[in-house]
Design a protein around this nucleic acid. Structure first.
Length: 107
DNA sequence: CCCTGATTCGC
DNA sequence: GCGAATCAGG
């Protein structure tokens, strides 16, 4: 089997898509990963430009976390955390956030 | 030990 | 140019 244009096209496409040489080899068929890599490097490829293109995953961050405000005393039977909706970028909910940051001129 | 790509080397 | 063998990194 020789490297036809279509096979090279597929090689480049798959390689550029972040596929591994083994995957590409399997995809093309009748080639080992070595052949794929060898051809790839001869083609001037090698490193994959942007592997992220293979998985167009949308960046999602934790919308909210449970409020980490401790309720009760550590070791106590009923000791637990608030668990309410924490404000973004903060470990506590609004209520406890106020409590956490209220040490202004209170004293 | 499994995998990966990179390079080497004979064809 | 081709790909297996080998090398080197995770």
């Amino acid at each position: 089997m020789s490297w036809t244009e279509e096979r090279i096209e597929k090689l480049k496409k798959l390689w550029g898509s972040g596929k591994t040489a083994a995957e590409i080899a399997d995809e093309l068929g009748d080639v080992t990963r070595n052949a794929v890599i060898g051809k790839a490097n001869r083609l001037g490829l090698s490193s994959k430009s942007t592997p992220a293109a293979a998985k167009p995953k949308k960046k999602v961050i934790p919308a909210h976390r449970a409020c980490q405000w401790p309720i009760g005393h550590p070791g106590e039977d009923n000791f637990h955390f608030c668990g309410d909706e924490a404000v973004p970028s903060k470990p506590y909910c609004l209520k406890h956030c106020n409590m956490a940051y209220q040490n202004k001129d209170n004293n």
